[in-house]
Design a protein around this nucleic acid. Structure first.
Lengths: 259, 259
DNA sequence: CAGTTTAGTTCATATATAAAGACCAAATGT
DNA sequence: ACATTTGGTCTTTATATATGAACTAAACTG
């Protein structure tokens, strides 16, 4: 249903492939690995080479991405950075909670993870930047939704596709809206197996100079279950420490402030 | 003639676009900027969003690449790094020569710039990682060619397309081979307007743990013209400083060593 | 060094896809 | 509150493109 541009997606696959293998790869290897016809693989590689994104570190030992990727990615990240204060804040959360923590933004009907610090526990929630979860069915997403103008939120929730992911998945726009209002009154957003099985999490909205973000702490329900309220208090305190005592008053008056 | 995968190239264009503008862009903006139909632009953006490579920093203010790009690029760069010693070496060359210096590897018939430090002079040679120049017609490329097994070099030179770029461009495989032999005997590779007009440069081959690299110092001919020999001596000395006194003996016995 | 296997390249064509245009929604201005 | 403009989405189809197959060149192997 969604229109995927095949060769753009293939290029991303290739990019991810090199990131995980970390080794040069020959045409034959790539063709084999992805199940692409040799000729197609050839064309794609040629394109990348022509544009200076792929080279041969060692003669006849295969191709590898040039530092150009890193260069461009750094320029991009540098121009519209997640402020250092945010990274500090995240690190703080990670340290206090010992669970996996992340920052998310929005993209259509989904929340996208922008920065992740994984828990040190062996059993933990695992994710990386770029991971997407449905906005309406997750605490992370709801903490984004609550920052939108009412009208836009209404539109988004109307167009959402309501699928049952777990026991607590909301199935109508009304339900989601109710959860959001209730969460604002409570002061934090909660998820407990609504989207990811056995996952418990606490999210807070985090508007920052016009950017619409949210922060989440999450882990296995058996660890998080009883600690949610406590985690929420910690999170709000951390927000105030990092972004100013009156941060919520100024940017999120609708959110209940915990003691 | 070369087969370019259009949508892969478009994706690269988009990537580069964000790196240069550094701002979020809406579908309409992108469509307008590239002259792509709205529908095509939509499809491409959708693909990127679906894969977690694009998000909306601010509601309705357009899309921007997620940190995922940076993440992957860092993993890639980290797994097969240009050693720090190489970067130090480059910096040293830049400081000594006050000209633009770079490191290059090979990709098909071209040399690709992997790392560049630009001259502080207002009039200087400008380049960035990913830039490609024909292997047979540049000092940078010839310094790579000389490291190949004779047979591979022969094949490459046979398949090369000989185009006249400037006064000194070699036009046959034989000419290139002669230049290479002569340069090895001299101890360094020279270019003077053979490919880039008014550009003078000195290159040395730089094989490093199996990798086939070359280093080049280049600037406008009016500055470099009389300093080539001197620059070459400095470069060889720098190589010995950074990679060991007997580096050339061990890795490049064919290269004449300057006093 | 000849024979065999593997790797890379080219090309015609069936097929998947990019794009034109119509449509819809939501801001913005009056 | 209405009209207008702007931004985003959907669908159909002509067309550009991905690919199978055939080919060439290089690397092994005994």
């Amino acid at each position: 249903m969604p229109i995927i541009v095949k060769q753009a997606a293939n290029l991303l696959d290739l990019f991810e492939f090199f990131a995980t293998t970390g080794r040069p790869a020959s045409l034959a290897e790539l063709s084999e690995h992805f199940g692409w016809p040799k000729s197609s693989t050839f064309n794609l590689i040629t394109t990348l080479v022509e544009r200076g994104f792929l080279y041969e570190p060692r003669p006849r030992q295969g191709f590898y991405p040039t530092p150009r990727w890193l260069n461009l990615a750094q320029e991009i990240a540098h121009a519209e950075p997640l402020p250092d204060s945010l990274q500090d804040f995240l690190r703080d959360l990670a340290r206090l909670s010992k669970e996996t923590v992340w920052l998310a933004g929005s993209a259509g009907q989904h929340a996208v993870f922008l920065s992740v610090i994984e828990s040190p526990h062996a059993i933990r929630y695992t994710a990386q930047p770029g991971k997407r979860v449905p906005m309406h069915a997750t605490a992370t997403g709801q903490a984004l939704l609550c920052q939108m103008p009412d009208q836009r939120r209404a539109v988004l929730l109307r167009n959402a596709t309501y699928e049952r992911f777990g026991s607590g998945t909301p199935m109508t726009a009304g339900e989601v809206e109710a959860i959001i209002q209730q969460s604002l009154k409570r002061g934090w957003f909660m998820s407990a197996s609504a989207y990811s099985q056995d996952l418990g999490g606490v999210s807070v909205p985090l508007p920052l100079n016009g950017r619409m973000l949210s922060a989440t702490v999450a882990g296995p329900l058996f660890r998080m279950g009883s600690l949610m309220e406590e985690t929420a208090v910690q999170m709000q305190a951390a927000v105030k420490r990092h972004f100013g005592k009156d941060y919520f008053n100024r940017h999120l008056p609708a959110l209940h402030q915990l003691p």
